[in-house]
Design a binder for these strands. Structure first.
Length: 958
RNA sequence: GCCGGAGUGGCGGAAUUGGUAGACGCGCUGGAUUCAAAAUCCAGUAUUGGCAACAGUGUGCGGGUUCGAGUCCCGCCUCCGGUACCA
């Protein structure tokens, strides 16, 4: 019988669905294992061949673990709230819920086509009220908690209120944005609104005025990671800085735990570094500089208190609160000019010229507490409002930017670190000997830092302080398609979280999703929804995309529960994700937020583990070949002109300029090869696709095509072809090089597609897609299939006892597949299957004892094929409920070993010896071989190195 | 700039702790089968010299350690990813 993958796959997919083969429960005696994929955002473009790479790898691993006796949780769902659906709704009027559902249906179809072993009964969609009820619930819990630094955990806000009642806030060690201290009496003297405002500064989910990335075109605030190069990641619209009242999550409270707990999880070094850098912990001093002629002080943060004697001026961020007060009348005009300049500068412009320093003198002076000199106070945009205290002491001799600033504005520079003993040391390195610094003189930098910190603390100028680059996460979006905040406001603006029993707070149905101007979200238009009968109002912002994805891995454990986000039973059984597979793009966003939410739930005793993802694998991107046409920049006689890539050099020599225009790869002949080109038919398709170029000239080397006519060039035969310029790039809709997995599966089957994607290379590595190579894997599968049939195509499996050689082929494969799956090396697994199949075919093996185990072995990789052959072998039930073959090392023992023999480290021959020959005997025997004597003749044998079962090296003199 | 990662045939890649470099597959070349093609099968395929046996050279470049280096160490180059007025 011929191998017909599509028939087999259809049959078994139906069987799996009908018998719920992949259904899993936490009521089990077997050890658990949780394999998770980063769930997709269901975009309108559907999946391309790059997306399933991680899903295939995780599916193989999940199936493998299942066969190994584990109770495997392997779910899938959709990250279904998000901006694209909303923008689509704005342009087309289709409700986001509708387009999202349609996209999900399409994704599901594509996923089903690939034979994954997901337990679909556990599917989650973040946009479903039954799901976001619990997103809202966790948010409300965050709102009801503060972070107690003394106990290092989140605590209920009532605890804090009780302490305020008794002792005010002076003894409270909590993460906060509260800038004033108060006594118990003062607290009791506050009215409700004042108390609420104070508490807001302690809550883990809190509201504050913050400078945000406002995108006018999208009508919303964007998170830092949604802004790339100063423009919005989606759409590329300009983004400006603006102060707005926004919800935030106090992720900074968890900064240290997020940093140090990285040590105990199995993530790549690169990934840990990225998170570490993002958190950006630095230790230094927070201290005050007095202002001359004022009671006010300027608070700064520095990691280099040792250089304080070199602090000759100060710089404040332009947005700093003290700027108006410190501006003297004679400087006001200059300062105002600078402030309006800084405000108008978009983030993008600021980034574009980081080398250029700008600033203005305020006219006031601070006093350096150690030199007691008056130092001028400036403002400059290189000092950021949001980092540290928004003010710095400037030490031009030991900081590059301060140096550039001082030189530009003619400010004093005092050398304070002598680096002459440290050649190659830069200003960045904390090394050298302190000079010109009074009591610090002669000390090494690290010792001086420590000494200075002690002095600052004992003199009451400031204290040791840890600072983080990590900012609290902005959690408000002025969008429709997201989770509504489960809060209400009273007439005074006091916020209250909704009770769990009142959740979910569902999105109101609307048909206009456009943002209103001035930062008002679309929901503001749903007045009936916003204004409650009791006079309270709702929040019109919604949560960002990261909300639903910050805890979805927990919901899979118990997805239908409407009493809890997941039952304690389920959570304590499944605990954490054992293997998480997804792209690097979520390195600092999703993975950081998820870890924080998880730690919060841990603090509340609702999850048993500190970290959510034990092992993380980042799959590499599958790239596509982009095929470009060269189009001349200037039109020729009013029409566009395209040229063959082979003519480019000559044309450019003539002074013509060309741009590259990506072309749909379907039209390209020999796609992906160096000779890839458009032939006449291809050009016609191109014109049909791009009618703008109907009149254009297409100039090949030998012939020219225009308006359907091919004209041979003088002296040429007239074959027309236009060679395309090919480059490896992203696989993307906009580059017209997307390969749809459905097409590949239609032709070769899902099993083949799965194995080929794995065969392409290591899972973590980026690699280009090349459909041509798939034939090798397809041939292998047919060969594998062929082991079970005779030449006439009849089922032919024998009961005969396998030979020792056949057992050895099988068990070699078992060993290698097991080892390779365990270390996630799926590409080498595929080649092992090929080798085993080739060997068995050569041996003419059709013994049931061998083939049966081989089917079990390949089941995780080619699940449909394995089922069909399993059934053919007369087995009942699914092969995926069988066991993984058990290795018998006895079959791997070699009788004789072919030793590679080296002379002075160079391989010269091989020699066979019995495997149990002792090294001493080998040493003698090898020298007696004629072939060896050829090399040792007349020379002194200095030594013979024998590595048992590996190799022999003979060292001879001269 | 800083932090990660990677450079191996025409191509994707293999070599798990230093021990036969190039497994497996694609592509290419030749052959068998066929009226022919597809499909399949067989052989070859790093490079230089040689009919061959064999020998020389070879894992980005330059050094080093070692009986032995793709793998370890030192110094460079290139590419990819992350990040950046972070005080």
């Amino acid at each position: 019988m011929e191998y017909k993958p599509r028939e087999i796959e259809k049959k078994w997919k139906a069987y799996w669905d009908e018998h719920k083969v992949y259904k899993v429960s936490h009521q089990s005696d077997r050890p658990k294992f949780y394999v998770l994929d980063m769930f997709p955002y269901p975009s309108g473009a559907g999946l391309h061949v790059g997306h399933p790479l991680g899903y295939i790898a995780s599916d193989i691993y999940a199936r493998y673990k299942r066969l190994k006796g584990f109770n495997v949780l392997h779910p899938m769902g959709y990250d279904a709230f998000g901006l694209p659906a909303e923008q689509y709704a704005i342009t087309t009027g289709v409700h986001p819920a509708k387009s999202t559902a349609a996209n999900i249906a399409r994704y599901r179809e594509q996923l089903d086509n690939l034979g994954f072993s997901f337990d679909w009964d556990r599917e989650v969609r973040t946009c479903e009220p039954s799901y976001y009820k619990w997103t809202q619930w966790i948010f409300a819990e965050l709102f009801q908690h503060y972070y107690d630094k003394a106990q290092n955990k989140a605590m209920p806000i009532e605890t804090l209120v009780a302490r305020f009642e008794k002792e005010g806030n002076t003894q409270v060690n909590a993460a906060n944005s509260q800038d004033k201290s108060f006594s118990a009496a003062e607290w009791q003297g506050m009215n409700k609104k004042e108390q609420a405002d104070v508490l807001m500064n302690y809550r883990l989910a809190y509201k504050k005025a913050s400078y945000v990335n406002w995108c006018e075109a999208l009508g919303t605030v964007l998170a830092n990671d949604e802004v790339k190069d100063g423009v919005s990641e989606r759409g590329g619209h300009p983004v400006e800085r603006r102060a707005m009242m926004q919800w935030s999550l106090r992720i900074t409270a968890y900064a240290d735990r997020l940093l140090y707990d990285l040590d105990n999880i199995d993530w790549s070094d690169a990934m840990k570094r990225m998170q570490g850098n993002w958190i950006g912990r630095s230790v230094g001093a927070q201290m005050f500089f007095p202002i001359a002629g004022s009671e006010q002080k300027i608070e700064i943060f520095t990691t280099r208190p040792d250089t304080i004697f070199g602090a000759t001026y100060m710089v404040l961020a332009p947005e700093h609160d003290l700027v108006p007060e410190l501006t003297t009348p004679d400087q006001k005009e200059k300062v105002d000019t600078y402030l309006s300049y800084a405000k108008a500068r978009s983030e993008r412009e600021r980034m574009a010229d980081v080398k250029e320093v700008t600033g203005a003198f305020l006219g006031s002076y601070a006093i350096n507490p150690f030199t007691e000199e008056q130092i001028p106070i400036w403002i400059g945009e290189y000092v950021l409002k949001d980092y540290g205290t928004g003010a710095i002491m400037a030490v031009p001799s030991d900081d590059d930017r301060d140096d550039a600033f001082a030189r530009k504005f003619g400010l004093k520079i005092i050398d304070v670190v002598d680096k002459s003993n440290y050649p190659g040391s830069t200003r960045h390195d904390k090394e050298g000997i302190i000079i010109n610094s009074g009591f610090l003189n002669g000390m090494e930098v690290p010792a001086a830092i420590d000494e200075m910190l002690n002095r600052i603390e004992s003199m009451g100028l400031g204290k040791r302080q840890v600072n983080y680059k990590l900012r609290d996460a902005l959690f408000s979006r002025q969008r429709y398609w997201g989770e509504p905040f489960p809060v209400t406001y009273d007439a005074d603006g006091i916020v209250q979280a909704m009770a769990p029993a009142d959740l979910p707070l569902e999105l109101p149905d609307m048909d206009d999703f456009k943002p209103s101007t001035g930062g008002q979200a679309p929901l503001a238009r749903a007045t009936d929804w916003v204004n409650l009968p009791n006079g309270m109002t709702r929040e019109t912002d919604t949560m960002p995309g990261s909300a639903g994805s910050s805890w979805y891995f927990l919901r899979y454990m118990d997805p239908q529960n409407d009493q809890e986000f997941a039952s304690q039973d389920a959570v304590n059984y499944w605990r954490e994700v054992d293997l998480y597979i997804g792209g690097t793009e979520h390195a600092v966003g999703h993975l950081m937020y998820s870890r924080m939410w998880h730690k919060f739930l841990y603090d509340k005793g609702l999850v048993p583990t500190v970290e959510p993802f034990k092992k993380l694998i980042n799959q590499g991107m599958i790239q596509g070949v982009v095929e470009n046409l060269y189009m001349q920049k200037d039109k020729v006689n009013g029409v566009n002109r395209f040229i063959c890539a082979s003519l480019l050099a000559a044309e450019e020599a003539k002074g013509h300029k060309f741009t590259k225009l990506p072309v749909l790869v379907d039209y390209v002949t020999d796609y992906g090869l160096p000779a890839s080109h458009l032939n006449e038919a291809g050009v016609k398709q191109f014109i049909a696709w791009r009618p703008d170029y109907a009149e254009a000239i297409f100039e090949g080397t030998d012939a020219i095509f225009q308006k359907g006519v091919v004209t041979a060039k003088a002296g040429k035969t007239g074959t027309f072809q236009l060679i395309t310029q090919s480059e490896v790039g992203k696989m993307s809709k906009s580059l017209y090089n997307v390969i749809n997995p459905d097409d590949v599966v239609e032709q070769y089957g899902a099993d083949c597609f799965r194995m080929y994607e794995m065969f392409l290379g290591p899972i973590e590595q980026a690699k280009p897609w090349d459909t041509k190579g798939i034939s090798g894997v397809y041939n292998f599968l047919r060969k594998f299939w062929g082991l079970f049939f005779d030449k006439l195509g009849n089922w032919a499996v024998s009961d005969a006892e396998p030979t020792r050689e056949e057992w050895k082929i099988l068990h070699t494969a078992i060993k290698r597949i097991t080892d390779d799956v365990e270390r996630y090396s799926f590409n080498t697994c595929v080649s092992t299957f090929m080798i085993a199949t080739n060997d068995l075919q050569k041996a003419g093996c059709n013994k049931v004892a061998i083939l049966e185990e081989l089917v079990q072995l390949i089941a995780p990789f080619a699940p449909h094929l394995a089922e069909e052959l399993w059934q053919g072998l007369g087995k009942s039930g699914s092969v995926h409920h069988a066991n993984f073959p058990i290795l018998n090392e006895a079959y791997l023992v070699e009788d004789t070993i072919e030793y590679p023999v080296q002379i002075n480290g160079k391989l010269r021959m091989t020699a066979a010896f019995a495997a149990d020959t002792p090294p001493q005997v080998l040493e003698k025997a090898i020298l007696e071989l004629e072939a060896v004597q050829k090399w040792t003749e007349g020379k002194e044998v200095k030594k013979v190195i024998v590595v048992p079962k590996r190799m022999i090296n003979i060292v001879v003199a001269g």
